[in-house]
Nucleic acid binder design. Structure first.
Lengths: 231, 231
DNA sequence: TTGGTGTTTTGACTTCCGTCAACGCGGGGC
DNA sequence: GCCCCGCGTTGACGGAAGTCAAAACACCAA
């Protein structure tokens, strides 16, 4: 009996579609791991010894300059795949934002397994293409949007992304949610400073667009206003 | 005799690795097309009816806001794959920057063929992963670098990218090259305005770092200076 | 409750880049 | 050759966001 049998992302992650025999083989080369909030899983420019599936929690992918500036280039949620298979060094560090559970593989083992299982490679390809789309629309935000457009876009995206994994059984975007990011991390996602993020949040609150019940909580009072601000 | 036999990117594009029989089948569903500079090949948000391999020339991938701001989110060179296979609408327009030749497929035909040829899907996966890496490092540039760092990084990237396809048989980065971009397009790549781009070019010229023999030509006089400016 | 620490907010000031406008230049057509 | 038009450059100016610093706040532990 493999631990995959009880895996909550079994039907959504790239391992979906594998039969029992294949899952058993995959299970042989992978292992479960927990990562506590703030703990790194992969270092930028290391040989990317491992790849992983996210089971639970949220992780950030970041790149940094030597002088310490940081940009969050991706966010991984449950069922997402992280790491860089097929012979390149990883271009990003991966750090847990919340306590997380992941299913890790050595890159070599994973590469070999993937090449023998086209269905898995296909799932990975679909995921990678979707991630590339998301990343490109984020480039638009980074290159061409101003601070208030960035914040509005960010809040809408959060509301969508967190709804999928949220506790609320209702469908559609979340009206109220808990950010997995500190203010500094929001700044690192949007290419802003922490002060600018803070000022924009305050402005939205004063304008009655959102409510901020606590540091990490956001409640969207006027979604339509956010949509029109997002540009 | 298929036209693939004489294709200059036959060994570099995703069709590399297919045997003669498979190439013949692929040739059946594809066709050659020329695109003149400035002409669009794919519209943003259309159903992405087609995908393509670049044989010759350079094309830009762009996203735009309703109010006309544009961001170039990718650049396709010979042997690159463009378009969005597998059931999503494309998130970017594709427009030729130079006269170009491409090998186009209807998306449905290509999807079907790809699913039957894991080796091709694997090549596409490797390409997509590499493109995602490049895109992420560009996010760092857009979010965290200032104008002079952006310009320096851009010139170095151009020098690398154009060397691969350049006429000069010598290896290594090109010392002198012809930009496939207008000043406005450089601005759209870097998330700047045309005026800022122009000023930064002039500054680099005055500082003796580059020479600008004509509007599109760039000669790098002091590569090391560019590297250290790029941050 | 209190005190301490790290995060967030707020304020004052600065700066980089965007905006607007005028000018220059180069290449194509006549 | 000459003119014209689009692209690129330059200058003056303003404003959005960054920087620096201090205050306020949340959260934890004792």
């Amino acid at each position: 009996m493999s631990s995959c049998d009880t895996c909550v992302v079994r039907n959504r992650a790239i391992c979906a579609g594998l039969d029992n025999h294949e899952i058993e083989a995959l299970n042989q080369i992978g292992r479960r791991r927990t990562v506590t909030a703030g703990e790194p899983l992969i270092w930028e420019d290391d040989d990317s010894l491992l790849v992983a599936n996210v089971i639970e929690g949220v992780l950030k992918l970041t790149t940094s300059t030597e002088d310490g500036r940081e940009q969050i280039v991706g966010v991984a949620y449950p069922s997402d795949f992280i790491g860089r298979p097929f012979g390149q060094t990883s271009s990003a560090s991966v750090v847990a934002l919340t306590d997380a559970r992941v299913c890790v593989f050595s890159r070599n083992d994973f590469d070999r397994f993937a090449r023998e299982h086209p269905e898995l490679e296909h799932k990975l390809l679909e995921r990678t293409l979707a991630e590339l789309d998301r990343t490109r629309s984020w480039m638009m935000l980074l290159g061409r949007k101003n601070a208030s457009e960035k914040i509005a876009t960010f809040l809408l995206e959060m509301s969508d992304r967190l709804a999928e994994t949220g506790c609320t059984p209702a469908f559609g975007p979340a009206k109220r949610f808990s950010l997995p990011f500190s203010r500094q991390q929001v700044a690192d996602v949007l290419g802003l400073t922490i002060e600018t993020v803070s000022r924009q949040f305050t402005k939205l609150k004063n304008d009655g667009v959102i409510e901020l019940p606590s540091r990490r909580e956001v409640e969207i009072l006027n979604r339509q206003a956010l949509v029109s601000l997002a540009g």
